[in-house]
Design a protein around this nucleic acid. Structure first.
Length: 507
RNA sequence: UCCCCGAUAGCUCAACGGUAGAGCGAGCGGCUGUUAACCGCUAGGUUCUAGGUUCGAAUCCUAGUCGGGGAGCCA
């Protein structure tokens, strides 16, 4: 996998590569000076914990952050573990008893007080850290006004409990690590596609087509729920609604992104997606982020190749860029995550037709609760057995019976199957679902008729097949499921900052 | 939405029809270049909600709410 070329912006590491160069008159941000306004935004002039931990002993520094723990020593000093979220680790700030506010403030610091500290980076005398900050001034920015009721105590909490204090949970080791990994993966998603000439298309969040397939939708309306306008037939008159018709939150950007695919060739969506299903599982959210690439002049085999290299790129990025957080997940969440994803990076994914998968499941002799039979969709237990026991790695299943798949999937020559694929991963099951799309208008129309869908509703989608149609393919990837897989986090509600699930929209 | 399990101190749990407890956290004190610190003391409860059974309910019954595991739906 080609790494991002770095030479172009090494000269200015503080500045993202896509921003214009700073004017020569503007001084480059320097650490160790006091905050100032530059007219170009607030300059971050203190040192992040991340940088402080790598700083050379002897340098002066100011750090800011939140107290993780405080330990007093009668030898005349206190140890403050300070975290600012810039990395997994915390900086040990050593506060000598001769600080003017030592007794009045330092000894009263509790978990999650915010402070700033000036001092010198020194080699640590103790074990557990190589450098620490020997403070000569510590200012308390924000107290914890009642430590007894502060919800995140200095102890282990269950994730279920932490969800009830979602506004404070990012201060914990685990949720902080998840947030950094989530960011790294998001950046890697854009980088992967950008490097390969894909364009990010902002497909709409609000959709007027109720024909997106895939499940229950949330209604978007400004109508008065109590006194909704009525049609002559007694139904709600959506002609008087904001958009003049029924609208919902999108369940997929695919249909819309296909239009840009038929112009820009390689495109993708990455944004929030909404499903109003009453799903109560560790793998479902009502609001989640989905990535949907779409490639013109591409068939199912090409689609599968992109899916595989995409996943491997993401795994590699997270191992390279977040070794601190990944070490934590591997130690405390799932002792196999690093081994698992390292292995996957080098292992070709298994490719198997649906028909072969059914045959192998039948031959396995395994007793399943639900029957395995050609024509029926595979159950979770079947998928898990396939990927966890039978082949022990991700499996790309292809060419499913047409009756269990969506109308837009391309019909194969056998007349029985469509060019669909699912990427199944150990532990979390289906991580990607995709297909080659039906580009032949007559075949598409026949499918719409068979499935009793109204052709008129799909007029613009059908137009793509009338005006310069081309074979194309794509897939959808649940972003949170990738984060789950990479971190080993068992519940999808703990890998998104504010989970939306049935009955839960607090925060 | 369906099946199973659960809800007791700030948190994690015990008490299984007869006076509601522990560990951790918190407060105070002691000790210590400490680091999941250690030792002592203290505070902290309308046992999820609403009904019911019983002389007596945290405990048994019914309904609801919320959480977990599994299933369906899917990403």
């Amino acid at each position: 996998m080609a790494r991002r070329p770095r030479a172009t912006f090494e000269a200015a590491p503080d500045r993202p590569p896509d921003q214009p160069p700073a004017p020569a008159t503007m001084p480059a941000p320097r650490a160790f000076s006091s905050p100032r306004h530059t007219g170009k935004g607030f300059a971050m002039s203190w040192l992040s914990v991340k940088d402080a931990l790598q700083a050379a002993p002897g340098s002066r520094a100011t750090v800011k952050g939140w107290v993780r723990t405080r330990r007093d020593s009668k030898a005349g000093l206190s140890f403050i573990n300070l975290s600012d979220g810039s990395c997994f680790g915390a900086l040990q700030v050593v506060a000598p008893a001769d600080l003017s506010n030592y007794e009045s403030e330092i000894q009263k610091l509790t978990t999650s007080c915010s402070i700033e500290a000036d001092g010198e980076i020194v080699a640590s005398q103790g074990k557990g850290q190589s450098v620490e900050l020997k403070a000569d001034a510590i200012r308390v920015i924000g107290w914890v006004d009642d430590p007894d009721t502060y919800p995140i105590a200095q102890k282990r909490h269950t994730f279920e409990y932490l969800r009830e204090v979602a506004h404070l949970r990012p201060r914990t080791n685990t949720i902080g690590a998840v947030a950094r990994v989530r960011h790294t993966l998001a950046m890697a998603v854009h980088r992967f596609f950008h490097e390969r000439g894909y364009f990010w298309i902002h497909t709409p969040i609000i959709t007027g087509s109720d024909c997106e397939g895939a499940g229950q939708m949330f209604r978007v309306s400004t109508l008065d729920l109590v006194n909704a306008p009525r049609t002559n037939e007694g139904g709600v008159d959506f002609a008087q609604d904001f958009f003049g018709k029924e609208t919902h939150l999108t369940v997929s950007g695919q249909l819309n992104v296909e239009t840009y695919c038929m112009a820009l060739s390689k495109v993708y969506t990455f944004g929030p997606t909404f499903r109003a299903e009453n799903s109560n599982t560790s793998r479902h959210l009502a609001e989640f982020w989905m990535i949907e690439p779409e490639m013109a002049f591409c068939d199912l085999a090409g689609d599968a190749d992109v899916a595989e290299s995409f996943l491997k790129y993401l795994f590699k990025a997270v191992l390279e860029e977040r070794p601190d957080d990944m070490a934590f997940f591997n130690e405390h969440i799932d002792k196999t995550v690093i081994e698992t994803i390292t292995h996957l990076i080098d292992t070709p994914f298994e490719r198997m037709t649906y028909t072969d998968a059914v045959a192998r499941l039948e031959k396995s002799g395994e007793k399943f609760e639900y029957p395995v039979q050609w024509g029926l969709d595979l159950q979770s237990e079947h998928e898990r057995f396939l990927t966890e026991k039978l082949v022990k790695k991700p499996v790309i299943l292809m060419n499913y019976p047409k009756d269990i798949k969506a109308f837009y999937m391309r019909q194969n020559d056998d007349g029985k199957t469509v060019a669909a694929m699912d990427v199944l991963a150990p532990k979390i099951g289906e991580i990607i679902g995709g297909s080659q799309r039906e580009e032949r208008l007559d075949v598409l129309d026949r499918r719409l008729d068979e499935m009793k869908l109204n052709k008129a509703d799909y007029w613009w989608y059908r137009d793509l097949r009338r005006y310069g149609t081309a074979p194309h393919a794509g897939f959808g990837l649940g972003f949170e499921r990738v984060i789950q897989f990479v971190t080993g986090m068992a519940n999808i509600r703990d890998v998104i900052p504010f989970p939306r699930t049935p009955g839960n929209s607090e925060f």
